[in-house]
Design a protein around this nucleic acid. Sequence first.
DNA 1: GTCTATGTTTGCGG
DNA 2: TCCGCAAACATAGA
Length: 279
Amino acid sequence: MPELPEVQTVVDDLIAAGVPGAGIADARVFWPKTIADPNPAAFSRQLRKRTITAISRRGKYIIFHLQPELKLLFHLRMTGRFVLARAGTHRTRHDHLIIRLDDGRQLRFHDTRKFGRAYLAPTHQTVTGHLGPEPLSDGFTAKKLAARLAARKRQLKPLLLDQTFIAGLGNIYVDEALWESHLHPLRSAHTLTNQQAAKLHRAIRKVLKQGLKNAGTTLGSGQANFYSLERRTGRNHSFLKVFRRTGQPCPSCANPIERLVVGQRSTHICPHCQPIPKQ
DNA sequence: GTCTATGTTTGCGG
DNA sequence: TCCGCAAACATAGA
């Protein structure tokens, strides 16, 4: 289930497949709730005869830039993915939206759990305006993170998962970043020293860049796993230090990794490297 | 068959 | 502001 590195991988693969430059012949919606805005009929009508000029990402959103000017956005949520199909290929189970391109290919949005959403908007900010800073942007400095952390009393883990605080992190990369920076997920954000905030800043960028380099994290082989375009799998699984490694030795100190639940989310830590915060 | 967990997000009540 | 819970769904594994 895609976080920033996985979403960026999908964007990169769509670009590599030559989707930008293609015109849209038509769009057909098979599961109405997949279209968040506008209604499915208006969605299909507005997409027709536009050209995809570029594809980019903001947080976990994929942005298709269209001409005449319009933005098409997708959020993959848990199981959303894209498939490119030749004309005439029969629609498979869980293909909820088919965009026919004028080069004969079809861009299909496939989503087993049906949580993924598509949006049309005049500007991408209409949809992404609530998001916090991009962790890999130049503007996201250690100083800025320290200031944002100092203003919040929440537990670190739920705060880092909050897309309005910082965009793009999910369960995997938050656990990895906290392990990397030796911070406990229950630690209250405002108790971090500037040095610890700087360490967290470095860790966040490190784990995201590593995920990106490895084309994302694919954990198993079932429907619920991350696949990029054409079911391409990521290679980051073997680089994870704590996520879903309960009972296995910590790569740093060899103590067994523990699993706990924080903010209703499964969480993985090394109890030795990430000591419990003092109350 | 049954129960639980799942990498996301939103909305509600307190 | 913050927290816990439920819901949106389908599937895999125990």
